Simulated assay, not measured.
Amino acid sequence: MLNQIVIYQNEFFNPVYRPFVGERWEMRLADMVMCRGYWSEARLVMGMAALMRVSDGGKQAWMSMTPMEIESQELGCRHAHGHVVVMGLGMAWAAVNAALHPEVSKVTVVEFDPEVIAMIRQLEVVEQLPPEAAARITILQGDAYTFVPDTPADTLVADIWLPLFGPDRDKEVRRMRANTGASRVYFWGQEMVIADRARRRGLPLTAQTVDAIVAEMDLPLIGPAECPNYPDLIERAAQAWYRPVD
């Protein structure tokens, strides 16, 4: 049985995290966790870090370095270019990987919670990059829905929500795009929005269906043009993670 377990590896830069305990946030480490990916099978994750949000109701996992989290962000980082605006700092994974992309000139991160910013600085996540990549990143405290950059964005990457699926999330992203001027957009859970609209209409997830739904969303989404198998990826992700909202 043990020889059938696959240890998770990926080609991205994965920062080293340390435990952190703050007023509203905690960073935890787990020696090993079995997790499935966003569109891939389950694998064993070694030394997994997880960011927990602390509230009166308890502690909630906000982000983690699982295959699901990484795969659900990778398209935005892989196809980013120019000035990238990242809405939501989280564990800074998207920001640091965007900064390492050769076609990216600048990364502006907008984070609402100053404690998250302080945590990432204390853990020296950005400082783990080569100096020239670290210098591309600017982290600002602000509101994703109202932030307007000094220079227009070329790429917008938005990840400020829980849960993964929100039926009207594209409306929120259109507000962000209007403020930033981004020519390309990737938002967390966009595949779930597409899958939801296809399922509600009884349509198969073909390239034609995806193109029609994306056109209705009126967002220049990263994914359909960049991935020939994007409909298949959406279907695989939806089978594992789609939870309809009544």
Rank of each mutant, 00 (worst) to 15 (best):
M1I: 10
N3G: 03
I5D: 07
V6K: 08
E11S: 15
F13Y: 07
F13H: 14
N14E: 14
R18A: 13
P19R: 07
F20S: 11
G22C: 07
E23F: 09
W25S: 05
E26P: 10
E26K: 15
M27P: 04
R28E: 07
L29R: 10
L29N: 02
A30G: 07
D31V: 14
D31N: 14
G37E: 09
G37V: 11
R43K: 09
R43H: 10
L44C: 12
L44E: 05
V45D: 05
M46P: 09
G47S: 06
M48V: 09
A49R: 06
R53Q: 11
V54K: 08
K59T: 12
S64D: 12
P67N: 10
P67R: 05
M68N: 09
M68D: 07
M68T: 11
I70K: 12
E71A: 12
E74R: 13
R78E: 12
A80R: 02
H81E: 15
V86N: 10
G90T: 08
A92P: 06
A92W: 00
A98K: 01
A99W: 04
K106L: 15
T108V: 07
V110I: 14
V110D: 00
L123Y: 02
V125F: 04
V125K: 02
L129Q: 02
P131I: 04
E132R: 11
A135L: 06
R136F: 05
T138C: 09
T146F: 09
F147M: 09
V148F: 04
T151F: 06
L156Y: 01
A158S: 14
A158I: 03
W161I: 01
P163E: 04
G166D: 11
D170V: 00
K171L: 12
E172H: 14
E172P: 02
V173W: 05
R174L: 02
R177A: 10
A178F: 06
R184E: 06
F187W: 11
F187V: 02
G189Y: 03
D196C: 03
R197D: 01
R197K: 11
R200Q: 14
R201P: 07
L205I: 12
T206M: 12
A207Y: 00
A207Q: 07
T209D: 01
V210F: 03
M217H: 00
D218F: 00
P220E: 04
L221V: 01
N229V: 08
N229G: 04
L233D: 06
I234H: 00
E235Y: 08
A238M: 02
A240L: 14
W241H: 05
R243G: 07
